[in-house]
C-alpha cells in the first residue's frame, strides 16, 4: 500500500514532539526517524542509590549499567 502522511499533531503521543524544534526534523523523516516518537516519556522507575533501570525508554538513551549489585 502507499504510505500515508498523517498530521502528527493530531496523533496521541506524537504531538508531544510536534512542537519541539529538535523533533520536527525527526517527524518529517519517515525512514527510521519516524520511530523517534517512542522516545517520548518512556519512563523507568528509579530508585535512589541502588538499582535502576535502563532504557525501557528512549532510543539512544543510556542504559543502567550494573556493576556488581549496583547500577552505576
Amino acid at each position: 500500500m502507499k504510505s500515508i502522511s498523517p498530521d502528527m499533531s493530531k496523533l496521541l503521543g506524537y504531538r508531544l514532539i510536534a512542537g519541539s524544534e529538535a523533533a520536527e526534523a525527526r517527524i518529517s523523516d519517515k525512514t527510521g526517524d519516524v520511530k523517534s516518537p517512542v522516545r517520548i516519556s518512556d519512563k523507568i522507575g528509579t530508585k535512589t542509590g541502588a538499582v535502576k533501570t535502563g532504557p525501557m525508554t528512549m532510543i539512544g538513551d543510556k542504559t543502567g549499567i550494573v556493576k556488581g549489585d549496583k547500577v552505576v
Binding site: G13, D42, G45, V51, K52, T53, G54, M56, G64
Partner: peptide, 10 residues
C-alpha cells in the same frame, strides 16, 4: 541490567 519497575507512555 536491572530494574525495580518501569512504565511506558505507549
Amino acid at each position: 541490567f536491572n530494574f525495580d519497575g518501569a512504565s511506558h507512555y505507549q
